[in-house]
């Protein structure tokens, strides 16, 4: 491409680039605010007029965060535990179900799939009030297990449907050939379906993971000091000894969302390619 050519291309595309920049800047406003404020001296966060860049870059917010709010480490740990086991449980529950919906054509399976979809429409908040006394009764209040079960259940429908769409795309002939060779169903599942499904497993695991990592509602209602997750603690952190320590809040926010951003980067292609069959977070 000659430079002349390129120049004309740039000028032709300039309006679109400007539009793109506006959209991108608009999208990252809060993220930028949180990151830049986390490196400001706390007094500067409240500065009037506000500053767009830290006048003096400091890491003191991060250092003080872990000193002032030792619970934050525990909250991160709780988030990690809940996220990890939600991923594992969701995959192990949904993959067999997806396989069934994809390969078993009896009407009973279609009908149960519709039940699954209908259940997904149930607003999570509606079960929270009855769940509170139930969890008390069975001794599961403020526990990791509660959150893991809730997250898994509320993600299971969509994950199953995504996996089903993927398994639909695996040629059934491979399996038929294996059966002819005398393989059992278990062998077909573990030697053929499982390895071939690895990409969708990774992608859906990340979807569940970022949901569990960020979830606020259930975490807020069903945890106290024991299983409290990072987002809940951050929302609670706006109260401390001397007014709101915005420095700590922003530092904690950055620590919380950086892993989620990395997850998003990994899963991005998966999210925007070929998941028209209803993939979305919720």
């Amino acid at each position: 491409m000659t430079s002349n050519n390129m120049l004309s291309k740039i000028t032709r595309n300039l309006p679109y680039w400007i539009l793109l920049m506006i959209v991108v800047l608009w999208s990252i406003i809060p993220i930028y605010t949180a990151i830049s404020s986390s490196f400001k001296i706390p007094r500067e966060i409240f500065n009037y007029p506000p500053t767009y860049f830290p006048a003096e870059v400091t890491f003191s917010n991060f250092a003080r965060l872990f000193e002032d709010v030792p619970e934050f480490v525990i909250a991160l740990r709780n988030s990690a535990i809940v996220t990890f086991f939600s991923m594992v449980l969701t995959i192990s529950v949904c993959l067999p179900a997806a396989y069934t919906f994809s390969r078993f054509k009896a009407p009973v399976f279609r009908r149960s799939a519709i039940v699954l979809i209908a259940i997904r429409m149930f607003p999570p908040l509606v079960i929270s009030v009855p769940l509170f006394p139930i969890l008390n009764e069975i001794g599961l209040s403020d526990s990791h297990l509660t959150l893991i079960l809730l997250y898994t259940t509320f993600q299971s429908t969509i994950i199953t449907l995504i996996m089903k769409a993927y398994i639909d795309g695996i040629p059934i002939e491979i399996e038929e050939a294996a059966y002819v060779d005398g393989a059992t169903m278990y062998q077909v599942f573990s030697r053929i379906i499982l390895p071939l499904s690895r990409p969708v497993i990774v992608a859906t695991a990340i979807m569940v993971g970022s949901y569990a990592w960020n979830e606020f509602q259930f975490g807020f209602l069903f945890t106290s000091t024991n299983a409290r997750t990072a987002p809940v603690l951050i929302a609670e952190m706006v109260g401390s000894l001397t007014g709101v320590q915005w420095g700590n809040v922003f530092a904690a926010s950055v620590v919380q969302f950086v892993p989620a951003l990395i997850f998003l980067w990994v899963i991005q292609n998966q999210l925007i390619r070929g998941m028209t069959s209803g993939a979305t977070k919720g």
């Binding site: 740990r77 535990i81 996220t83 990890f84 990409p199 969708v200 892993p259 990994v266």
Partner: peptide, 24 residues
Amino acid sequence: MLSRRSHRLFFLLLTVFLLITAGA
């Protein structure tokens, strides 16, 4: 679908998670 490098990154993150969990 996902590239191999993405997979490796994913499993690396998973390991970090596990270590945190185990340590906790």
